[in-house]
Design a protein around this nucleic acid. Sequence first.
DNA 1: GCTATATATTTTGATTATCAAAATATTTGC
DNA 2: GCAAATATTTTGATAATCAAAATATATAGC
Lengths: 151, 151
Amino acid sequence: MKEKFLEINKLLVEIYDDVNHIEEYSIKQGAFSDLSITEIHTIEAVGLYGTKTMSEIAGALDITMGTLTTAVDKLIRKGYLERSRSDTDRRIVNVGLTKRGKLAYRIHEKFHMDMVKAIMSDFSEEEEEILLTALKKLNIHLKSIYMHGNT
Amino acid sequence: MKEKFLEINKLLVEIYDDVNHIEEYSIKQGAFSDLSITEIHTIEAVGLYGTKTMSEIAGALDITMGTLTTAVDKLIRKGYLERSRSDTDRRIVNVGLTKRGKLAYRIHEKFHMDMVKAIMSDFSEEEEEILLTALKKLNIHLKSIYMHGNT
DNA sequence: GCTATATATTTTGATTATCAAAATATTTGC
DNA sequence: GCAAATATTTTGATAATCAAAATATATAGC
């Protein structure tokens, strides 16, 4: 029992590290090597469609707005984002992806899908279902630990 | 098909973020709130038994030795690590955990085990086996992507 | 046994990501 | 119209990281 838990723990830690490495590597090799993982995640949080406010993006990324301001500044300089003030409420700043930003978004999305496809390639239909169920349970458990703040 | 992959991808991303949050939170709440996640990982890499050289630790953590030097300096100041020069080869620095370092190691290890136990608590024996197999496959796949550097 | 080369580590100088708190600008409620 | 609330940016700081230069020691070849 203890053995199995130890093994699962070790696998989870390794998987976590590998995903990190792969994502980092794939960005550095690809067409958008001027972006860091953090910056890709900011682009992801802005989203393909329309615009988001600074508060919305900072909330999604769980960073302060001060941090986001400098991140957005840099991504505008690099040509991935554009900023505009709301006409109805001049305090609000709307951030959206430029054409280049959308391309980066789509390429990163494809990287993620390719990774999942590679993982699934030698799973049977049934195993896929089981994994999906297990991941859902795992996710719910983690969320409940996170919410209740136990351990 | 596409749908299922999208869902799995989303779950993986959420699980990744949750694990991060939980680990961060558990450290900040616990007896070693003067440690960051990065520092805990350095302590983990040094290990409970005997000592490791700077190169070994930097290799395990995949950081440069320059980065490690400053990290070790700080952990020595905080009382978690100790440093000594090898007698047989005076270029080599051996790093080991202090008593406090070992305690931090054990508590962090327990946190990990508790998390795995919580995750597994509503899995049947059979489901546990399936998850273990799935994680092994996932791990092998990720490693092969990482090695071959595809996508 | 000296000297050149290799190895292990630290130092230096820089960058990125982050935060909390103060400052600024705008809106809303009374 | 003014006080309080809201949205964002600025300021000043810290942690984690790297590459390249510097330092110290060991080893290999003559």
